[in-house]
Design a binder for these strands. Structure first.
Length: 895
DNA sequence: CAACAGACGTA
DNA sequence: CGTACGTCTGTTGC
């Protein structure tokens, strides 16, 4: 057998691992961070398993300094300081390597890459196969028929095998020319700037045309266009890059390839080191990979998977999916209120698992699956139930008995993550990797490829593993959520999980759209865009891209020499506020046209988006996301129906495109008035604020009359406006600076206003302060229903981060409690609708508003029901006021 | 081609 | 130097 040498770039892999795994979840009882060690070791084990090397070496950079930094001081400058939790982990990795008896080779004044290049060259000469794993692309220049680069992508679980063919396919040049390409394009992570405007494609074109970098440089004056100009202006950098990215292949090293044959690990030492690092699962993996008779076996999951054919499913389900919970994983395509299932995997806790194709069931199986899915007494655990629910529904199946939705559970445990990928959760909570062999499809869902049997089998196995991991994850997450005395568990079981069923219904129904009208609007807005554009061109005397903030800056602040606005990263802002200001100061007509252009272009793009998302049933089916907003709110995507314009007359026209559907009479909107202020009154127990609500008068006017010491009837519109801004701003952590900015009053006046406000409503100030203090102590905030948000930055050394966290702490209980309340209202409305047997239905939620489609003759009954259920969702110290409107369209239903 | 920045719509 | 989102466009290159 040909010897195979595995060469690892220790620093680069450890750094990858560090960033791929959340440091919070990987630390020992002593507080030592171990995420980089874990990730590195995990990658190493995978490579041992997958590549079966006979010889191994790891190389580390000895310091940040090397002959390259001597030549070019800026080399790798600009890289941020090594993060504190990363420091120290390199020496731990070296301990792991020592226990594994894997040698480390380093060279003063050179980088790990040079050591690797040298060893690779020597190994090749000795007739060995070489594998290089590095996160640094410079290594690509070493690839050839006997040298393969293992380039880590996506966290710590996947590497790309970069063969010469793969490199050429990706970069359009062979490995021998990779350096040439890199010199032209530059490498930002090394702080090597290349030729601006030249990417992989252009560089490859030149290199292939002129036979390498020398040819490109020799012919630089022949290259036309902007890119050519750019090249000529940056020849020095290119040559510098070429010099620096050359890997040194002839170093004197302490070891030669033949010295590093791997004879296996030191069991005792591995036990000790892994004990100290608290790597329980990783040790098991290591042992099973390296010791097992069948090295291919998946460790951790003792899965006995079967692919079931027609006629086999019914019996399997009877035997394995009864009283004990099973994990379910589904593949297919999902979205826009429907879906299609291409595969279903079911896994038991004891080992047996099955996969079947729902399209290939016989009649008996079909009925058995339907009965199993619909039976609330046969518990199922599933990761992200809503898409599956919709796809099952499209198949004619009902899903009941979901005891844990692991995505939702993970969201409640840590609501700041934004994504709850099963692979990540398995790694984080089970310390187990799901090797997913199925390539992700376009929409991010797993798709099975058909045709290649081997691939299909691997994919089916992968889905079964997901089902099993889901089941295991449910236990861990349930335990995690139970640590707060049951509040989170109740939130999960009584609010979030039932709500996902209601949301699925709403998505499935969608809202009717008037496409003819939308098209008309599109034409009109397009004409307005054009008119504003033309007018702008005329004023400025030439054409330019009004949509480009960059060009705009040049035109406004250089060519037209207008006063500078607020600084942003790229120069000076051109946002609407700033342009309004500028217009007030200069009356430059270009600004008016520009603002008009922006408005119209925004409206047009909104209409375009809506038109594109109308389904065949002439309705728009948004997707409500339940695990995105850290405060507990929902969000809406594809399209976002929670940001349809309302503030301007022209924007409101878009609302007229949302109409009542066939068979229904009207649309109804019902919203909570000032729900956040009411929550603040409730939580703060401020008597004056509570009184303002209970007076029944206009709330902003009532608070203004207190602050300005005038009778309610004598409150001026300006006084009301100012207090309204304060009322709204309070829940966001508004500062006097921000208030003065918004109201265009002096900072002193804003300060005085806030002072006076808190004079009258002292309980509010006290409450807001106490929230931040308590959150600092606990590490989290909580809503009325106990929904938590963790805010570690409250104790940050960085003032900006800390103050940001303080404002979040202030806002989260208020925004989040409002979300709690409307979620309860939605559940109650849904239940009441079903119990009353009304045909009217709930279609949308916009944070404090619900939109309904009113069935003929049900207007009054529905209004009564909605007022009752929304108003009674929760008992607060102040009433929950609901206002209701109806009309033929969403605009008309406003009130 | 993908990720980022800037801008802007909603509550 | 006001929270929470999603989308579009142009620009840039972890």
């Amino acid at each position: 057998m040909t010897p195979r040498l595995l060469l690892l770039d220790g620093h680069s892999l450890a750094y990858r691992a560090y960033h791929a795994l959340p440091v919070d979840n990987f630390s020992t009882v002593t507080g030592q961070a171990t995420n980089a060690v874990f990730g590195f070791t995990s990658m190493l084990i995978n490579m041992l398993r997958d590549e079966k090397p006979t010889h191994i070496v790891v190389s580390f950079d000895l310091s940040r300094k090397s002959f390259r930094t001597e030549k070019y001081a800026e080399y790798k400058a600009g890289r941020s300081e090594t993060p504190a939790p990363f420091q120290g982990q390199v020496s731990l990795i070296k301990e792991v390597l020592e226990a594994l008896r894997i040698p480390v080779v380093e060279k003063e004044n050179y980088e790990a890459d040079d050591v690797i290049a040298t060893l690779a060259t020597q190994a090749r000469a000795a007739g060995m196969e070489v594998l290089i794993s590095s996160g640094d692309r410079d290594a690509f220049q070493l690839a050839d028929e006997h040298v393969t680069i293992l380039y880590p992508v996506r966290g710590v679980s996947e590497v790309w095998r970069m063969t010469p063919e793969a490199i050429e396919a990706k970069y359009f040049v062979p490995p021998s020319r990779y350096r040439d390409k890199a010199a032209l394009v530059g490498e930002s992570s090394d702080n090597l700037i290349g030729v601006p405007g030249v990417g992989d494609k252009t560089a490859a074109k030149w290199i292939n045309e002129y036979g390498g970098l020398d040819g490109v440089i020799a012919n630089a004056d022949k290259i036309k266009g902007k890119a050519g100009e750019s090249l000529r202006a940056h020849l020095a950098e290119v040559m510098r890059n070429y010099d620096l990215n050359r890997l040194i292949c002839d170093l004197e090293l302490s070891k030669r390839p033949e010295d590093v044959r791997w004879h296996g690990w030191d069991r005792e030492a591995v036990h000790q080191v892994f004990d100290a690092l608290e790597f329980r699962v990783l040790r098991e993996r290591l042992y099973s990979y390296l010791e097992a008779v069948e090295p291919e076996a998946e460790s951790g999951f003792d899965l006995e998977g079967r692919v079931l054919g027609a006629g086999q499913v019914a019996a399997w389900l009877t035997e394995h999916a009864a009283a004990a919970p099973v994990g379910v994983a589904v593949t297919g395509s999902f979205g826009r209120g429907t879906g299609q299932v291409t595969g279903i995997a079911v896994a038991t806790g004891s080992g047996p698992a099955a996969w079947f194709d729902p399209a290939a069931l016989d009649e008996g199986d079909e009925g058995a699956v339907a009965a199993w899915l619909a039976d609330p007494a046969r518990p199922k655990v599933i990761h992200d139930a809503k898409p599956a629910l919709l796809a099952f529904r499209a198949h004619g199946w009902q899903l009941e008995g979901v005891t844990v939705d692991t995505a939702m559970a993970a969201y409640l445990a840590k609501p700041d993550q934004r994504a709850y990928d099963l692979n990540d959760l398995a790694l984080r909570y089970l310390k187990r990797e799901l090797k997913v062999d199925a390539p992700p499809a376009d929409n991010g869902q797993l798709a099975l490829s058909f045709g290649d049997e081997e691939q299909d089998a691997a994919a089916e196995e992968g889905v079964m593993l997901r089902a099993r991991a889901t089941l295991d994850l449910a236990d861990v997450l349930t335990a995690e959520l139970s640590r707060d005395g049951g509040e989170s568990q109740r939130l999960l079981a009584e609010v979030e999980q039932p709500l996902s069923v209601v949301l699925a219904e709403m998505e499935s129904k969608g809202i009717a759209a008037d496409t003819d009208y939308l098209s008309e609007l599109e034409t009109r807005f397009a004409a307005e865009v054009k008119a504003a554009q033309q007018a702008a061109y005329e004023v400025h005397g030439r054409e330019f891209n009004l949509g480009s903030p960059k060009q705009l800056q040049e035109i406004l602040f250089v060519e037209r020499n207008l006063p500078k606005t607020k600084k942003i990263k790229s120069g000076y802002t051109t946002d609407a506020d700033a342009l309004q200001d500028l217009f007030a100061k200069t009356e430059d007509p270009l600004l008016a046209h520009l603002l008009r252009y922006r408005d119209m272009a925004k409206l047009k793009s909104t209409v375009d988006g809506l038109l594109k998302s109308v389904s065949d049933d002439a309705r728009i089916h948004t997707t409500f996301n339940q695990t995105v907003a850290a405060t507990g709110r929902l969000s809406s995507t594809d399209p976002n129906l929670q940001n349809i314009p309302i503030r301007t007359e022209e924007g409101r026209r878009i609302r007229r495109a949302f109409i009542v559907g066939d068979g229904f009479e009207q649309l109804m909107t019902a919203d909570y008035s000032q729900i956040e202020m009411r929550i603040m009154a409730h939580l703060s127990e401020d008597a004056a604020l509570i009184a303002a609500f209970n007076s029944g008068a206009d709330f902003h006017a009532a608070t203004a009359s207190s602050v300005f010491h005038v009778e309610l009837g004598d409150v001026t519109p300006d006084q009301r406006r100012k207090i309204k801004a304060m009322n709204y701003g309070l829940a966001y952590g508004l500062s006097s600076f921000g208030l003065s900015n918004q109201l265009t009053i002096s900072n002193d006046e804003a300060k005085a206003l806030m002072e006076e406000y808190f004079e009258r409503f002292g309980g509010v100030r006290e409450y807001l302060q106490s929230v931040v203090v308590q959150a600092g102590k606990d590490g989290y905030t909580a809503t009325i229903l106990g929904r938590r948000r963790y805010l570690p930055d409250l104790s940050s050394d960085n003032r900006q981060r800390r103050e940001m966290a303080q404002r979040m702490a202030l806002n989260a209980p208020i925004q989040g409690s409002a979300a709690d309340i409307i979620k309860i209202a939605m559940l109650n409305v849904d239940r009441a609708l079903r119990e009353s047997e009304l045909a009217s239905r709930m279609l949308l939620q916009v944070h404090d508003e619900l939109v309904f489609e009113v069935a003929p003759g049900e207007r009054d009954a529905l209004e009564e029901l909605v007022r009752r259920e929304m108003g009674g969702a929760m008992a607060l110290a102040v009433p929950l006021e609901v206002s209701v409107g109806t009309g033929r369209d969403w605009n008309g239903a406003d009130h």
